[in-house]
Design a binder for these strands. Structure first.
Lengths: 337, 337
DNA sequence: ATGAAAGCGCTAACAC
DNA sequence: GTGTTAGCGCTTTCAT
């Protein structure tokens, strides 16, 4: 079994037994030394460490996890890797988790609840110490699995609804509402909407619902809307605005389902020489870099995506009662409204 | 131990032994049925499946992996989650890996080889079936570990150099060279460069080196350069171009380390009314959506990032000799040159 | 301070 | 077709 290398390079096949034997100690002693747990003499420590090094020993976490109680894995389930929002959240989570000695294991649902269910079941079979999932909407079975797994579960990026254990996010409904009130307060009245497939992106749907009802409170309604059947993208926003204005040329403002779409709209206006905000105002959602750096910074809502990942991860690694944390959002008054 | 739920909800604490007992069969029989391996009667099958369902059984992959030979994990090591290139590659890899029954486990190095070494050692301790890492440059110890792990190792996104086992990418040097030749052929002569920290982003450094030497072949050199000490971003490109033009106002073209930087440069020009490409030409790298959808599509080089992830994953899941696959790149003649 | 031994939950021979 | 029996490599009492 031992597969030693003169230079002490790990080989992946050396076992703790090999190390113990080479060091002339028992397995349990070797185990204690390697994990710095329990007690052992300095001399023993040396010989075990030397043996491990010279044999190129790499501990087998699979075996370690099985023998001990909890694993050091944390499952993370997100809808997409294309929408920068999720890599951002992942980044926050990753930093905290790795810092706490955990290993993130991610799965991507493509915005499908059925897939989410399958993936979560599969992740659960690795007996993770915790689970982080995007959103509050899941199949009944998913919720049941999560509940009964007896691990910490964090639901992220949304606070409009009830969660299972930990909830960290912000109100998409409120964000939509704030966007509408902003446009109305600026004097816009003929307001359109360009969005993407809302049946899949439930948080975008909540924003639009919040937007709608805030308009209604002001006695207004969405004057025209254009929904593209695919997922959001800059091109989709660009084309979508083109079509919307074709049908409803008298709009004075357009609300987009997110910044990608809005930047697309912005590009459409630039290309067609449509004055912003004089002729048309534009409002987005997310506060992406590209939106901030544009010649006219986009009016939008900045969401604390990285912080959501961090906070969620921190809570997943901790004990405590179920919690709900609303990290809020920030309305950016850019130059496009 | 059994922790049954009337509705058959998994509990995470039920074991195969529980299922076997409930079904009135032996453990191995239950195991066979659950994995669909070996033979068993239809009747047995039914009772095992029912027992599993009603006990809410979730197999323990940790135990399964330890007992069998190989794990179904694949480690993926990338420098960053902020640069969309890596989520893109990840997306390709994820699709293929999940399709083949593997579970990706990702780690993020922040462009540091030391961290990469640590993270790879840590991933190796989960005894993955394969490993996918970005780039060809690693510490000696990293290479040694990877070599001796006796698993498939894919190095991705670069083909300028020798790999350990599988290499899937494209030539960054060549991409830089092609960019230079394009600018020269278009008649530009006073060419500047705006880049980010090259000591960390080794592939960007290779592009710049290729760019430089192609210029040299044309008897030219980089007229002025601006290196920002941080990682790439739209804002950095915008500010960087501002500073560069401050020092070298007579440039007629600027090469950027990537599209993020280039879009920043594009925004700078839009904001200052600098005519593109009349007064200044701009060239990027990556072929991002935002570059394609801009009012003037950015001249850039499109890289097959998703395909690299897919191809790499496919090879990691397969047997065969060491391979090197160059997926090439495509020079996009946009409207900014 | 250290070692022996009993598992962790599962798979994989090998009998029957 | 099905059950019994060894482990997989490690951690963890529990003696010593």
């Amino acid at each position: 079994m031992a597969d030693e290398l003169a230079d002490g390079t790990p080989t992946g096949t050396t076992t703790l037994t090999d190390v113990a034997r080479a060091a002339g100690v028992g397995e349990s002693t070797a185990s204690r030394v390697l994990r710095g747990h329990g007690s052992f003499s300095a001399k023993t420590r040396e010989s075990v460490l030397n043996a491990a090094r010279s044999l190129g020993y790499v501990p087998n976490r699979i075996a370690g996890t099985l023998a001990s109680t909890g694993s050091k894995l944390v499952g993370i389930v997100i809808p997409s890797l294309s929408n920068i929002v999720f890599p951002d959240m992942l980044r926050g989570a990753n930093t905290v988790l790795v810092g706490a000695g955990f290993q993130p294991v991610v799965a991507v649902t493509d915005y499908e609840q059925g897939r989410e269910e399958t993936l979560i079941e599969s992740l659960l079979s690795w007996r993770p110490a915790g689970m982080m999932v995007a959103g509050l909407e899941h199949t009944e079975r998913t919720v049941a699995m999560l509940r009964h797994a007896r691990i910490r579960v964090a639901e992220l990026l949304d606070s409009d609804g009830d969660g299972i254990d930990i909830v960290v996010g912000y109100s998409n409904r409120e964000a939509g509402g704030a966007s509408a009130r902003h446009l109305v307060s600026r004097g816009y009245r003929r307001i359109g909407y360009v969005g993407h497939d809302l049946s899949r992106d439930l948080r975008a749907a909540k924003r639009f619902a919040g937007f709608r009802s805030a308009l209604a409170e002001g006695g207004l309604e969405v004057a025209a809307e254009e929904i593209i059947p695919s997922s959001s993208s800059i091109e989709a926003g660009r084309d979508g605005l083109g079509r919307l204005l074709g049908r409803a040329p008298d709009l004075d403002a357009v609300y987009f389902s997110n910044d990608d779409m809005a930047i697309g709209g912005y590009f459409h206006c630039l290309a067609r020489g449509i004055a912003i905000p004089g002729r048309l105002a534009i409002f987005g959602y997310n506060g992406l870099d590209v939106a901030r750096a544009a010649p006219q910074p986009l009016s939008t809502i900045r969401t604390p995506r990285v912080a959501v990942g961090e906070t969620g991860a921190r809570l997943v690694c901790s004990d405590g009662p179920p919690t709900k944390i609303d990290l809020g959002f920030e309305l950016i008054e850019g130059a496009t409204t």
